[in-house]
């Protein structure tokens, strides 16, 4: 996705926040004075936590598409080593498209500071967040919340836990206790929840649940975290008790207990060749005599703009996330 054309860009080094606020007021005034069919539109405040350089492309891609679906007051935080605050203010405008149509503009502020400043990010943001609009904190991969007081100012946190070994899941579980967490990984797993529900829709299948002895999750590449989320969800919803997770060479396994005390062997297997849907290729429930296999068919999670959906106050995919995290985290905790 390409970024919207910029209408103006301002940079300041070693500045005070007042200068940023003044610059925003100036560019908005200029835009109004132009009177050429552009309008300033913001539907939310998006705060981007400082991200490692490896996540730069993810951040750029996310912000590039923003104007088309969720024009925002975006405030991106970045870290540098110098003892000063730098800033950039950019006004981006989607093209008007055709004569008589309006071009939608939104603004993006980048604040670059050292750790001591970023530890007070909430105070930096206070004058920049637009009142009456929801505020979303985006934690790109590898980033952390620089100032816990930020959580008091935002309505939801956006993360993506798909990649990795699941070591972030306990932190996310803790976070769900204080703020709504919209996890793109959970959105990508929506197909699996619907397919599992469909597979157990026939009453005879539901009866089978109490006899399940094996649950196999085949996951794609390095997406063990996605596998854990799905296994956690099945465990939670089936009423099973999570057991300690052991990991060996891309395989992870745990003994999970059914309510009747019977054991379910949970096995997560890495499939390097799989294309996966949300990082999962296959989910199989087995009892001594029967098997329910759920494949992904043609399903892919690539078509949906989950980033855009996750910015909404209540995306369609949020249900069951907290329960899934709790079960997955319990498996990880017992392993530790």
């Amino acid at each position: 996705m390409t970024a919207a054309p910029e209408l103006s860009r301002w940079r300041g080094e070693d500045i005070r926040l007042d200068a940023v606020v003044a610059e925003l007021a100036r560019v908005h005034r200029d835009l109004q004075d132009r009177g050429d069919g552009h309008a300033l539109v913001r539907t939310l405040n998006l705060v981007v936590a400082p991200a490692p350089s490896a996540a730069a492309k993810v951040v750029d891609d996310g912000l590039a598409g923003l104007g088309a679906h969720s024009p925002s007051r975006t405030v991106a935080l970045r870290r540098h080593e110098s003892d000063r605050l730098d800033a950039e203010v950019v006004l981006e405008c989607e093209q008007a498209g055709a004569a008589g149509r309006m071009g939608v503009c939104h603004d993006r502020v980048t604040l670059v500071g050292d750790d001591s400043r970023l530890e007070h990010a909430a105070s930096l943001l206070a004058p920049l967040l637009l009142s009456d609009l929801p505020a979303v904190l985006w934690l790109p991969p590898g980033s952390r919340i620089p100032d816990s007081r930020l959580l008091e100012r935002v309505h939801q946190v956006l993360v993506d836990s798909t990649a990795g070994d699941g070591s972030d899941l306990p932190l996310l579980e803790e976070l769900t206790g204080s703020v709504r967490v919209h996890d793109l990984a959970w959105g990508r797993l929506e197909f699996w929840r619907a397919a599992t529900a469909a597979a157990f829709a026939p009453p005879e299948r539901r009866a089978l649940l109490s006899r399940i002895t094996h649950l196999d999750v085949r996951y794609q590449g390095d997406t063990l975290a996605a596998g854990l989320l799905l296994a956690g969800w099945v465990t939670a919803r089936a009423g099973w008790r999570p057991g300690a997770l052991e990991r060996v060479d891309g395989r992870a396994h745990a003994q999970v207990a059914r309510p009747d005390g019977g054991q379910v062997a949970l096995l997560l297997t890495r499939d390097a060749e799989a294309r996966g849907c949300g990082g999962i290729e296959m989910l199989t429930f087995r009892s001594d005599a029967e098997e329910v296999s759920i494949g992904r068919g043609a399903a892919t999670s690539h078509l949906r703009d989950l980033f855009a959906e996750a910015l909404q106050p209540m995306p369609s995919f949020v249900r069951g996330y907290a329960e899934s995290l709790k079960a997955a985290t319990a498996m990880l905790a017992q392993a530790a």
Binding site: A194, A197, A198, F200, E204, W233, V234, R237, R319, G320
Partner: peptide
């Protein structure tokens, strides 16, 4: 048979 425990988290169920 018990209620389908997986259905509660699905906003848009798959067709039969």
């Amino acid at each position: 048979a018990p209620a389908n425990p997986f259905a509660q988290d699905v906003q848009q169920p798959l067709p039969d």
